[in-house]
Design a protein around this nucleic acid. Structure first.
Lengths: 249, 249
DNA sequence: TATAATTGTCTAGAGCAATAGACAAATTTG
DNA sequence: CAAATTTGTCTATTGCTCTAGACAATTATA
């Protein structure tokens, strides 16, 4: 579906372009049924570069855990299918990925009580400067980092929210302590960009990687805003699913 | 919301990373109300690089038409806000972007009658090898390339579909000729990747740019599949909007 | 058990990316 | 008008990217 080629003098090193294309190609069946990649010489010829340049690309992917090289045998794909993350009116982290991974977990990286900035205040329908709780979280599936999120909550309505989250490991559970039995995703805005240095570290990505950015906006049953969050997904590990697959839009 | 920083020895030239960050930052209010960017010296200090490196980045963006430099005065943003493309059960190109651009148009780049491959056949509920019509299209808003798409249709149900599309410039209109008065988006799967060479050419992007990839799946009123398409949006020019904003999910 | 195929390591050189400094040209400010 | 600010151009140097060739180490094959 996609014809490959690389650009010189583009500001992106050839080895990085090749690494990106190999990473992408893996899903589309690059490598035979045993997961074996073409040889370094064959890849070099295909991309029109020196063998050493291909080696640099492969080494980066080995470092990332995407490939595995064996001297004398070849280079092999380490099978890691992309997760499909459903987005809709009832978007939930754990429920959405159930069945796609054995071990799902969320971690609290940091939290702080702050004064609401203009965009946060507008989203939560508070006045600028009102106290809000900021949560920095990240999630893993079977030990692979999947996403990181920055979420804002009304501090007056949800005092000590972070403690409930840490104890239960779940936003949904934490809401229950504040009598929010159910809640809804009112809107999600999706964009994409290159990972910044914090993304690289937290999601264990290599420089030049892409993140899907989802700005989400949750409301309770009465329609009052309760959460505003920016979630960044590793674009190589996750795709976002809107509607379909037995999922109520 | 996003703290900027750049990575050395990443395989991506510093000037390109800086260009990417400036391009992104423009939407988030980099540059004051007059559209004036910080001076080259200030940017160099902020990114921790030499002024010449910043100049290379700026020159690339001037070439792209995103910035405009004036000797003695400064560097200015050529105003180009990011479009917000709604995705939901009634996703339509023109209707979705109405009001965000004066001049919306779709172009047919290519079309061909082919035998359905396995994934296409599955999506359209046909047998593998059944005749399908493949349309290659692209869209512009006020002369800026926004997206390109590859769509598949059942050739037996919609013979000559491409002629109706060319005449009306609209998928919705073309369907009317086959008594499909209304249709729905059953699901959309969103991912992101680096633009390939065809993307660069058609969407007029610079190497290293990111595209949002939306796999869409349309059905008619009775729930029968009528269209399967892959649309690629320039991530710098478009964000995808799921739900919200008076939009029925 | 040779032979071929494939990845791993080393050295050397050409070209692009980034730094550094100096000064010119155009514009704004006092 | 003079000074300060800001972009434009030039030269030189350092370091990273890519190429090129040779050979070692490991595994598969005839």
């Amino acid at each position: 579906m996609t014809e490959t080629s690389i650009e010189r003098r583009s500001g992106v090193a050839l080895w990085r372009q090749i690494a990106d294309q190999i990473r992408q190609g893996i899903g589309a069946g690059l490598g035979d049924e045993t997961g074996r990649l073409p040889t370094e010489v064959a890849l070099a010829e295909r991309f029109g570069v020196n063998r050493h340049t291909v080696r640099t690309a492969i080494q980066a992917l080995v470092q990332e855990g995407v490939l595995r090289s064996e001297q004398g045998r070849g280079t092999f794909v380490v099978r890691q299918p992309r997760l499909s993350y459903p987005i809709g009116s009832r978007t939930r982290f754990s429920a959405g990925l159930e069945g796609q991974a054995r071990d799902l977990r969320g971690k609290l990286l940091d939290h702080a009580y702050e004064d609401a900035s203009a965009p946060v205040a507008e989203a939560l329908e508070l006045v600028v400067g009102a106290p809000v709780l900021r949560l920095e979280t990240m999630s893993e599936a079977d030990g692979r980092p999947i996403s990181r999120a920055r979420s804002y909550f009304d501090a007056q309505r949800f005092p000590g929210f972070e403690r409930h989250f840490v104890r239960t490991g779940s936003i949904t559970m934490a809401y229950r302590h504040f009598n929010v039995g159910d809640y809804f995703r009112r809107s999600t805005t999706i964009s994409a960009r290159h990972a910044d240095s914090a993304d690289l570290e937290i999601l264990k990505l290599s420089p030049g990687a892409i993140v899907l950015v989802a700005l989400g906006f949750n409301v309770d049953q009465s329609g009052r805003p309760i959460q505003f969050s920016e979630t960044r997904f590793s674009a190589d590990r996750v795709e976002l699913q809107v509607g379909g697959a037995g999922f109520t839009v």
